[in-house]
Design a protein around this nucleic acid. Structure first.
Lengths: 347, 347
DNA sequence: GCGAGTTAGGCGAACGTTCGCCTATAATGC
DNA sequence: GCATTATAGGCGAACGTTCGCCTAACTCGC
């Protein structure tokens, strides 16, 4: 590696003091056009790039943002988180920040990890995802006086800054949609009540059912874990109900659960769409390519990432954002799995 | 934010010089047990953490590794890359390194991005994934005299260090497996010949077919783009062949392509497994949960990540690794989609 | 033509480490 | 008991910036 080119090298060549070069680069000072030109050409000729370690030391900031996510132990992949990560990386870059990764390792003392990162000044702020009830991370970080913004809410009374998608409204939209398709007996496959977003989405189901004044059979509300197999098994249970209580529509909190539902519906010899409407959540890539196409709720993930970064950058510049808690509306994507004319997708 | 605790603060409290504290922390010096104890308790009492910006400046290294990947524009998710990323993050952490993200942005001048990162001393080395033929990234980085290790090969004559999975052998294993199940007319759904890994995997198909002395109908070799829909449509074409030429087994280069295959096979009223064997590639989460379960080739992704990090760390410590190019063997995972007794999975 | 205000740019100091060299004291050999 | 070596720990310097203050020169009004 060639020797480092420093401010002093540039200064020598441009025949000014190195501090002047520094200021000129950052437009902190007025100089004659002639001097500026000399400096600029010296920079170009020497291929000078400021050393970020020195900048960090001096300015006491790293221009790095830590991103903590919960890697899924079950080897499930998460397109939403994948896209979220992508969005924060690109948006942060536009502000001159980079994203530093560190997963939530199960067997580690949380406090010490964050303290370490903060005290060693490796990162200027944090972004969290996979937030759950009583998530300890945000409070820990806030106690360290470091800005943090999360994707998702913990639904506690803390005022941790977050950006989230309004799952409740999203689910209500899905339910309203199947009601419009003429369904009345509607079941929901949700997540256990330990899941914050699961509970939120379930609330949307209640909202829409109440609004339409439809009765709810307790059997229609299933809260379980898993993905395809969970959907498959739960659906068998639902379809085993006596005919009068058997749901004609099944909404779910995740696309992959809906895949299991569809498989079970087809295994029972029923037609997805016409006989049993099915909806998913997240609009995973698979949703638009499967047959039948899956009606689902698309989260504005890119916008979430953008909003998270904007809020964090605001904090980092010492200001207060207009809103500390932002809720974005998801969008209903209608495909064949919830429509009556199910023939369409049969090749 | 409380004032920074520095070496000097610790030194003052332990009544030694601050340089001594530094050396004691890094075990660069012998001190009496008594002095060591004084220093250690001072560190604990003051909650001292070394400032990494200062360390970086002094040591001319950032303990950061840049990771460049190709975010999939088509909004396809990639469980393999997701897991790879996770593995390098954790393995790097064990060596005191962190991972810095930067996606391949289409409309950017590559050279300048990498130069920027290197010259500003933001990263000490690079990891690349999604390598293709004539991938420009590794050469650019190597020209900057910075260590780089990639996940995947470009199959050129450069000796860029890499760790890759032996897709050729993997595909051959899959083909041998279906041959053992009694199949003779075997088709492959591959990727276009611009895809390096696609071509590699196709070679494995030829290997196994030649080995078994089975004739190959040119129509059986399909090279296309896409996932579920590609598999679906290509399969329809294959099944439309006259009966004598119609394949009874279809191997693919990706699980999601296989999903499309299975849907098409079922749509044609054929039974997956007994009548048409299907295999995927990657062992995505969905493969084990779908019905029928998908026979597939599992890549040892975690091991790849570990090997990549180990190699890069070796380079970073100025040594040469035992091997600059490592090929890991994938593993056949047999499920119902390639087995005759397809009844099993029908609930 | 002189004092006041403005401007270009210089200069010392500091951010918190690590590194290499130096010195004082203790231990050892004879 | 004196010269010699080993050892604990001190000290100055440097890494490459940014920041604030300072000064010299130039502008302008009268």
């Amino acid at each position: 590696m060639a020797k480092n080119v420093t401010l002093k090298d540039v200064a020598r060549r441009a025949d000014v003091s190195y501090q002047t070069v520094s200021k000129v680069i950052r437009n902190q000072i007025q100089v004659t056009p002639e001097v500026r030109a000399r400096i600029e050409s010296a920079i170009a000729e020497l291929d000078y790039h400021p050393n970020s370690a020195a900048q960090n030391l001096r300015t006491q900031s790293s221009h790095l943002i830590g991103y903590s996510w919960q890697p899924d132990g079950q080897n499930h992949s998460s397109p939403v988180l994948e896209q979220f990560q992508h969005s924060i990386v690109e948006c942060a870059e536009d502000f001159g920040y980079h994203i530093l990764l560190f997963p939530q390792r199960a067997n580690r003392n949380l406090d010490s990890i964050y303290e370490e990162l903060v005290h060693t000044r490796r990162v200027d702020g944090f972004i969290l995802s996979s937030i759950e009830y009583n998530d300890p991370r945000a409070p820990i970080i806030q106690r360290l006086n470091v800005p943090v913004v999360s994707f998702g809410r913990s639904f506690d009374d803390m005022d941790t800054p977050y950006v989230d998608v309004d799952g409740r409204t999203g689910m209500a939209t899905a339910v309203r949609h199947v009601i419009e398709q003429g369904h009345q007996r509607i079941a929901i496959l949700g997540w256990p009540d330990t899941s914050a977003s699961g509970t939120d989405r379930l609330a949307g189901y209640w909202d829409a059912m109440a609004e339409a004044e439809l009765p709810i059979d307790p059997k229609w509300i299933v809260r379980g874990k898993g993905e395809i197999d969970y959907g498959y098994e739960a659906t068998h249970q639902l379809l085993d109900l006596p005919e009068k209580r058997r749901p004609t529509a099944i909404v779910t909190v995740l696309d992959t659960i809906a895949i299991g539902v569809i498989q079970a519906v087809e295994a029972c010899g029923l037609e997805v769409g016409r006989e049993v409407a099915v909806t998913g959540f997240d609009d995973m890539p698979v949703a638009q390519h499967m047959r039948p196409g899956l009606t689902t709720i698309r989260q504005p993930v890119w916008d979430v990432g953008k909003a998270v970064i904007n809020m964090l950058i605001t904090f980092l510049s010492g200001e207060q954002p207009a809103a500390r808690q932002i809720l974005l509306a998801p969008e209903l994507v209608v495909r064949e799995s919830s429509l009556g004319s199910a023939q369409e997708y049969r090749a």
